[in-house]
């Protein structure tokens, strides 16, 4: 088994997430089921990292730990340079809000909010002032090609459109890392490919790390780093050489016909994502 060394720094800079000696188990009735058994892994920044493995191998659990949604039974989790084990629940919520974006398999948009409001929600939590917030949401929706559907609720959008809204929401606070658990599983192959292309474009332009769990061959092909899990341990890690990750946004061999709408009219100046946000009590 090959694993990353959290103490190492890659040529791209410090790792965005470093997990050391991670053990995690779940209690099912009277039975304790070990899910992760002593994992050491490092996620390189501003890359596409894909977790691969059969069902029950621990991919989602590992994503939850990197996403600070769960705590390990044992081991250390460092995300964006912060040892998250030591954070309280509220501190962890603030940390997630500031550093981590989420894209879910079932999109998980808030059904009573419009596309615009769904993207705006994390910014409201962050306390960003309304003018700046609305400018940013507008640009994000333009970036994902949904400016026209800004005032539609999720129920009025197709699966692909919902996932694009979810991506815009995940990127709203310019997180250091986006966690995406099987983001294309509920989409047809063409739409899935477009979503992958969109995320790749976002990753390259915003320099954001994406960590996926997926069985999607398109996504696996797009991966910079591929971490294979089996039975709660890392079976292998395949990393693209440094520099190779900065490939053009249109991936070779990928059907990006739909991806073009994702980038058409997209802002070339992303400074709006540099806006300062101030935390508020939540």
């Amino acid at each position: 088994m090959e694993s990353g060394n959290p103490s190492d720094e890659t040529s791209r800079g410090a790792s965005v997430a470093a997990l050391t000696g991670i053990e995690k188990s779940y209690q099912m009735d009277d039975v304790t089921v070990p899910v992760l058994r002593g994992i050491d892994v490092e996620v390189r920044p501003a890359l596409f990292t894909v977790l691969l493995g059969p069902s029950g191998s621990g991919k989602t659990t590992l994503l939850n730990l990197v996403g600070c949604l769960d705590r390990p039974d044992k081991g250390k989790v460092v995300v964006a340079g912060t040892d998250v084990n030591s954070l309280s629940d509220d501190e962890l919520a603030d940390f997630r809000s500031e550093n981590i974006g989420f894209v879910f398999q079932s999109f998980n948009l808030i059904p009573v909010l419009t596309a615009f409001e769904n993207v705006e929600y994390p910014l409201i939590l962050a306390g960003m002032d309304p003018d700046r917030r609305q400018r940013r949401v507008k640009r994000l929706l333009e970036a994902v090609g949904l400016a026209e559907r800004a005032h539609n609720r999720p129920g009025q959008l197709s699966g692909g459109q919902r996932q694009r809204v979810a991506i815009a929401r995940a990127l709203a606070r310019k997180p250091k890392v986006v966690i995406a658990d099987e983001p294309t599983a509920n989409l047809d192959s063409q739409t899935g490919a477009a979503i992958i292309a969109l995320m790749r474009w976002m990753q390259q332009n915003f320099k954001i790390s994406f960590i996926f769990s997926s069985h999607d061959s398109g996504l696996i092909k797009a991966a910079d780093d591929l971490i294979v899990l089996r039975d709660g341990v890392i079976q292998s890690v395949r990393r693209k050489p440094d520099g190779a990750a900065d490939a053009p946004s249109s991936l070779p061999g990928e059907d990006t016909s739909e991806a073009t709408w994702g980038t058409e009219g997209a802002p070339t100046d992303f400074t709006f994502l540099q806006d300062e946000t101030r935390p508020i009590a939540r």
Binding site: D89, D90, S97, F102, F104, S106, N108, I110, R169, R282
Partner: peptide, 16 residues
């Protein structure tokens, strides 16, 4: 429940 998990993931505190 899923929605609660989502907004918590996005950064809403328990108090929220």
């Amino acid at each position: 429940t899923t929605e609660i998990g989502t907004v918590r993931a996005v950064g809403l505190r328990q108090r929220g």
